[in-house]
Design a protein around this nucleic acid. Structure first.
Length: 759
RNA sequence: GGGCGAUUAGCUCAGUGGUAGAGCGACCGCCUUACACGCGGUAGGCCGUAGGUUCAAUCCCUACAUCGCCCACCA
């Protein structure tokens, strides 16, 4: 025992163990013994954003995946876990700009597009390398040979190919409509990238002018300068007589032509039952205006300032304009009511900027357009049949081809689908995949309103275009927008395996087995992967989706930079060991539920690791040889072997069903409170070690004498089995002990990592 | 407004149609030759409230309450 320290020191073994695994090459499943005979099991790592360092949420997410991958590898699967990082477009650019401005007082306008892009890419790759080293420290068995980045050369080919195919199928179009404009970030964002903040607002009720017959209510009087109509419910007796009439009036010095229209969407019970329709500054109004063929006028610009809205308001911020208008209404005695209400203010998730609905020419993915899916493995969508992207997203989940766990999230998913609108994919930022569209100046002037999508002026191409395919002119201009980061993320499960090339990897490892992201990106990402894979491969991206919860601090708050309540996972691993952190995160974490991070728990699991270490220490000193034959001769033998069998069965079943918390709990209980507390003590008598009268019942010792060898083998057998069971959760210490057993020729296999799972 | 989740020991959370569990903490006693990062023991819970189904409910059903999240946005 002299050579084995009394307590386990994780920091002294972890690095060596990880290097040993790396050297073995077994993170790459193609190197596993009999690789070709094994059934593949694939997970794509949800790629962390290259905006900064990893936080506890990543540690949690990655631990869960590593546990499953290690389990499946030991079960004899050809287990592949593909690593990568995400360029995270807006998030990364915003972060870079902020830091860069602080340091150098320079903004994106001080650089050329190319320079600026390269600066961000450099920043991103620097972050990536620190992220990768963090992933190493967590002991993750990712196949580093297959490392990918959403903005590298291979993925660029995938993105362009995907774009081109969707464009050719008419699923990507350019359209002029009201979109979410992030005033701070100076870009459009998708519906899903908005956060709502509840604020107290004022609902103003007024008439545009004295002669106008109907009062309207709004929280944003400044937009009313752009109104084109007042909409009422068709059955509303109060206003029926006005429907169809048009009024020319002057509002805050701005001439308006307002038509009274009837629309079923209007709630007669709300406010005055009449809505001022502002076609170009509200998504809903835009739709109403389209239904009624109304044009609108843009009165707010990209900087959130009034523009073309009359002398009084010109150049004013929207908030200032509001005050001016309200005062004007009061002066004119047009204001009928002011009520304080709570409303939701839209803010851009990434920049915190105000979101202003503005009319813009943007690129969209049409989720409702019908197309023919020529080759399909999708359930409910036969090859050659007509379908839509929405249909793909719905049917694959509805028919159970893709299983969402926990089940309740499937409901949320369908609800989101029901309300899904076309996906705005263009962004006015520099960092990202540039939209692979070229405009030919020679062919035709670009339509300012984009009313001719797919016309002769626009060409999608995978490789950079030098000449116009129509007229051969070289006078081409590339689209300046970049793609929503989720466009490239949507391709992740197959772009990482070499698509669009038909690689062996793609054939072997796709569809992937399970995707394990947090539930907060079900829409952003999971849905988009189903969409992309469905359209581009005619197949699902994964068979199962396991959604985990969010790691929160002790007050139940999300970890975030702004609260600076983040805890560095590496600080925890340094203090308590990686294994301790891993089990602490998994322990008690039911699928889909949030977990509160508690350092005490990590400490407790460090104690568990130490317990395991001392179990091993005891056995290593008392068992010198390996002889597989043993039998349950005493009652204690019977109990422990039964318990072991039960633990194996339950742990296996629980791991197969992604109930990691239950598996961990069971093994923990057995190891500490059944094996260590009970059997280990009894074994002392059975091996004739105990000389204490008080603990050795009279006569028993003698009877146990010939049990020594048998007991030793049972001890060894139990330890070996427990190491296997614990390995997916605590890879370092279990592998370390395994190596000690191996040095003493008590086990044969070189690495516990690829040893067969017990059954 | 719609949906979802939570409500179980002081704290953080598991769990089950049939006498309630873990970790941490508390209290008492132990430095027993694997481990004081430990051992043995003790205390502590009408399993949110009210109904219902059942021989039996913490678990199933229905309301309600409180907290949290997601979605919609009534302008």
């Amino acid at each position: 025992m002299a050579d084995l320290p009394k307590s386990y020191d994780a920091s002294r073994v972890e690095n060596d163990i990880y290097q040993m695994w790396l050297k073995s090459g077994y993170f790459n499943p193609d190197n596993l013994p009999d690789a070709k005979k094994r059934k593949p099991f694939t997970i794509s790592l949800p790629p962390p954003n290259v905006t900064g360092a990893l936080h506890m949420g990543h540690a949690f997410e990655d631990t869960i995946q590593d546990t499953i991958i290690r389990f499946q590898r030991m079960r004899g699967k050809r287990a592949l876990w593909v690593p990568g990082t995400d360029h995270a477009a807006i998030a990364t650019q915003a972060k870079f700009e902020k830091e860069h401005y602080k340091k150098h007082a320079k903004s994106r306008h001080d650089y050329s597009r190319q320079e600026f892009f390269e600066m961000i890419q450099k920043f991103a790759l620097a972050n990536q390398s620190s992220i990768l080293s963090q992933l190493h420290k967590l002991g993750l068995s990712l196949d580093w040979n297959r490392l990918a980045f959403t903005l590298d050369k291979e993925r660029e080919l995938a993105v362009r190919t995907a774009f081109k195919r969707m464009y050719d199928a008419g699923l990507i179009y350019r359209g002029y409509r009201v979109v979410n404009w992030d005033v701070k970030g100076q870009t459009t964002i998708s519906d899903d990238e908005i956060d709502y903040e509840e604020i107290k607002g004022v609902l103003y009720t007024f008439k545009y002018s004295k002669d106008f017959p109907i009062a309207i209510s709004t929280t944003r009087p400044e937009t009313k300068v752009g109104d084109a109509a007042v909409a009422v419910h068709p059955e509303d007796e109060r206003y029926k007589k006005f429907v169809g009439q048009e009024f020319n009036l002057e509002f805050v010095g701005v001439p308006l032509r307002i038509k009274i229209i009837a629309d079923k969407e209007i709630d007669p019970a709300y406010g005055t039952g009449a809505v001022g329709v502002t076609p170009l500054h509200s998504m809903i109004d835009f739709e109403i205006a389209q239904r009624h063929n109304l044009a609108g006028k843009q009165v707010i610009n990209e900087f959130g300032k009034m523009k073309g809205a009359g002398e009084l308001l010109e150049g004013k911020k929207t908030a200032e304009a509001r005050v001016i208008i309200v005062n004007w209404l009061k002066q004119q005695r047009l204001l009928e009511k002011e009520e304080t209400i709570t409303q939701n203010l839209s803010r851009a998730q990434r920049t915190g900027g105000i979101v202003e609905p503005l009319p813009k020419l943007q690129w969209f993915v049409d989720v409702n357009k019908k197309f023919v899916l020529s080759k399909s493995k999708l359930s409910g969508i036969p090859s050659g049949s007509e379908t839509t992207l929405k249909d793909i997203m719905r049917k694959t989940v509805e028919n159970g081809q893709i299983e969402i766990m926990p089940e309740r999230f499937a409901k949320t998913y369908f609800h989101w689908l029901d309300n899904l609108r076309d996906w705005c994919i263009s962004r006015q930022i520099i960092y990202g995949h540039r939209i692979p569209i070229w405009y030919c100046r020679a062919c035709q002037a670009i339509s300012s309103q984009g009313q001719n999508p797919g016309g002769p002026t626009m060409h999608a191409a995978i490789k950079d275009l030098a000449k116009c395919p129509t007229c051969n002119s070289t006078d081409l201009e590339k689209d300046t927008d970049t793609l929503d980061t989720w466009f490239s993320s949507g391709l992740w499960t197959f772009s990482t395996l070499g698509w669009p090339k038909e690689t062996a990897d793609l054939k072997t490892y796709h569809p992937t087995s399970v995707m394990m992201p947090g539930y907060e990106i079900l829409f952003f990402w999971v849905a988009r992967m189903i969409l992309m894979s469905g359209f581009l491969l005619g197949d699902i991206p994964f068979h199962q989706v396991y959604l985990h919860g969010i790691v929160r601090d002790k007050q139940g708050r999300k970890f975030s930079k702004s609260l600076s309540n983040g805890i560095d996972p590496l600080e925890m691993t340094a203090k308590y060991g990686t294994d301790a952190l891993r089990v602490a995160l998994v322990f008690g974490a039911a699928p889909g539920n949030d977990v509160i991070f508690d350092e005490q728990k990590v400490k407790g699991m460090k104690h568990f690791a130490n317990k395991l270490w001392n179990i091993a220490r005891f056995i290593l000193t008392n068992v010198q040889s390996k002889d597989h034959k043993f039998e349950a001769t005493t009652e204690a033998d019977q109990i422990i072997l039964k318990g072991l069998e039960r633990t194996v069965t339950r742990a296996t079943e629980n791991l197969e069903n992604y109930r990691l918390h239950e598996a961990a709990q069971e093994i923990y209980q057995f190891t500490w409170h059944e094996f260590a507390d009970k059997y280990l003590e009894v074994s002392k008598y059975q091996m004739g070690l105990s000389t204490m009268e008080s603990v050795s019942p009279a006569g028993t010792r003698k009877n146990f004498e010939n049990q020594k060898g048998n007991t030793q083998q049972i001890l060894l057998h139990c330890l070996i089995t427990q190491l296997k069971l614990l390995h997916p959760f605590m890879p370092f210490i279990t592998e370390h002990i395994w190596q000690l057993l191996r040095e003493r020729k008590l086990v044969k296999t070189r690495l516990l990592m690829i040893t067969q799972w017990p059954s």
